[in-house]
Design a protein around this nucleic acid. Structure first.
Length: 409
DNA sequence: TCTGGGGTCCTAGGACCC
DNA sequence: TCTGGGGTCCTAGGACCC
């Protein structure tokens, strides 16, 4: 895999053959860190790490100056600071990232309406139908980079290829501040020498498993009989990887995708053993999930909890409801029942709630209606006065809260 | 070194139905 | 009599991605 510090950067010549290479992958360089630099230009040129200042936090993003010291995303903050003690640590500002992310995708849509966001800071563009004003795929990529730089001050690296997967690899190789075209005819030659970890879907575990079978490069994987691969990896993954390794990736650029789950989880600074405390936190998380379901116009059929213990062992429990819900109160009841059913548990490091099996909102018939109305009132007040303006009394510690609304007669 | 939070997809076993 | 097979749903866990 690329080292992420830009040392194996690869960009293509002006005259690279982009015939048929109609997929672009655009990726903002060191996005969160770059946004922080927009707001604090005096930090330019210094190693900057974005992350929370908390004992269990990890690196959210790092500038290239910090990456040169071996600092990378998802690394524990303590490790990062040992490697780069003079780094400047900046707390994340979600709302700023969302703002610039929206600007970025708007600019992408000036190139083509066929834009598929992937997370907050990258996306695919299908430029096969781009008009004369935009030009060839390579010209489209160059124009996109120019517009992003002019209109945001951020830098996008762009990969241009015949498929999503190869375009994504190309943008990764082009970083930072680069543009790489992989000519369609050279796709397989480009792929073969790369390590298997470069394949989409190969992480630490699968990489190890493959190397254990003497499969280290994409070329070696492409040459492995499918049956051998299936035995090692299971049917679905084996087939996907075998195709990707031979440059086969027919996935189209999709502009919209339905959400499949909505969840919220939190890690405690110190493990929590007190069941009452766990229930209170579940309340907060459940109310948040409910609010997000209502905003999305969804109801959930299944509620799941996730609990991680001090030793990092993690369990999940889920339950399908008699009736779908978008009400925090009902989500909380289900979550607490699941937690109780788990029995005696060790102290908890992380707890989370997730709403699954989402569908369009359904009208509920029972007591939830009253809860739903109460929670909608809170939604509206929050919309008017801002987050944090309203906090149901039952969320306050030790209050026990008022009694819930009564079941309709 | 000691591991966040938002997600997606896959596997495997058991229940249940025909 | 001691035992089929396919399909679907549910649940738990795991790998992976950004």
């Amino acid at each position: 895999m690329s080292r992420q510090d830009g040392r194996d950067r690869l960009v293509s010549a002006e005259d690279a053959d982009d015939t048929g290479a109609t997929i672009l992958h655009a990726d903002l360089d060191a996005f969160f860190a770059s946004v922080e630099l927009l707001d604090r230009p005096e930090l330019r040129g210094r190693p900057v790490i974005v992350g929370r200042d908390s004992p269990r936090s990890v690196v959210t993003a790092a500038t290239y100056e910090a990456r040169r010291y071996g600092v990378n995303s998802a690394m524990p903050m303590a490790v990062a600071l040992r490697r780069c003690p003079h780094a400047v640590v900046v707390e994340p500002h979600r709302d700023r990232y969302e703002h610039w992310s929206a600007r970025f995708f708007e600019i992408c849509r000036t190139i083509t309406p066929l834009v598929e966001p992937v997370g907050i800071d990258e996306g695919f563009l299908d430029v096969s139908g781009a008009g004369r004003a935009i030009g060839s795929p390579r010209a489209a990529a160059a124009l996109l980079r120019e517009r992003v730089r002019e209109r945001t001050g951020l830098v996008a690296s762009v990969g241009v290829a015949g498929s999503k997967f190869v375009a994504k690899l190309a943008s990764g190789r082009a970083k930072p501040d680069g543009l790489l075209v992989v000519p369609v005819a050279e796709t397989v030659a480009f792929l073969r020498p790369l390590p298997v970890d470069a394949l989409w879907g190969v992480g630490g575990r699968t990489g190890e498993r493959l190397r254990g079978r003497a499969i280290s490069t994409i070329g070696e994987l492409a040459d492995t009989p499918p049956a051998t691969l299936r035995a090692a990896l299971g049917d679905a993954l084996a087939q996907r990887l075998h195709e990707l390794a031979r440059g086969i990736d027919p996935r189209p650029v999709v502009t919209e995708r339905a959400e499949r789950s909505i969840g919220r989880e939190t890690t405690f600074e110190e493990d929590v053993a007190d069941p009452a405390e766990l229930r209170r936190v579940l309340r907060r998380l459940s109310d948040d999930v409910g609010a997000r379901l209502r905003r999305a116009g969804c109801s959930a059929r299944t509620i799941a909890i996730k609990v991680r213990f001090g030793d990092f062992r993690t369990i999940s429990r889920s339950r399908t409801l008699a009736e779908p819900t978008d009400v925090g109160h009902a989500i909380h009841e289900a979550a607490v029942a699941l937690l109780d059913a788990a029995g005696e548990i060790p102290p908890v490091r992380l707890i989370g709630v997730r709403a699954e099996q989402l569908g369009p909102r359904t009208v509920s018939l029972w007591e939830e209606d009253a809860w739903r109305e109460a929670e909608q009132a809170v939604d509206q007040a929050r919309d008017r006065f801002g987050r944090g303006a309203v906090r149901p009394a039952r969320l306050l510690p030790d209050s026990g809260g008022p009694r819930g609304p009564r079941r309709p007669a």
